[in-house]
């Protein structure tokens, strides 16, 4: 039989789903006092969510790295470009 979680504190302490959601929120917005307390309490007793938190922060840093620093410009082929500029020029004449 599953263990019944009696007190509210117990429910928080065992709720990894909520703790990981708060970990995501915390990186973006200020948590409420209550949320802060809940998360602190949970992380104190849950080493798995502590690993999650570290990796979640790391993934955000990796996203920055991937898309802001590492991004090299991809080039379109020149025949496509010639054609595209011609289309723009034609349309400009048409608009006049």
């Amino acid at each position: 039989m599953k263990k019944e979680l009696k007190t509210e504190l117990e429910r928080i302490a065992y709720n990894c789903r909520k703790a990981t959601l708060l970990i995501e929120k915390k990186q973006e917005v200020k948590l409420t006092m209550r949320e802060k307390l809940e998360l602190k309490l949970h992380l104190a007793g849950c080493s798995i969510c502590r690993i999650y938190e570290k990796q979640s922060v790391l993934i955000n840093l990796m996203m920055q790295k991937l898309f802001k620093e590492e991004r090299k410009e991809i080039r379109l082929d020149s025949s496509y470009k010639l054609d595209l500029q011609k289309r723009i020029n034609d349309q400009m004449i048409g608009n006049q």
Partner: peptide, 19 residues
């Protein structure tokens, strides 16, 4: 300067979309 658009910006915009 639309006549310079492709030269100036096409690769940049393509890279932006590709990401």
């Amino acid at each position: 300067e639309p006549r310079l658009w492709v030269e100036r910006h096409a690769d940049f915009l393509y890279t932006y979309a590709s990401a």
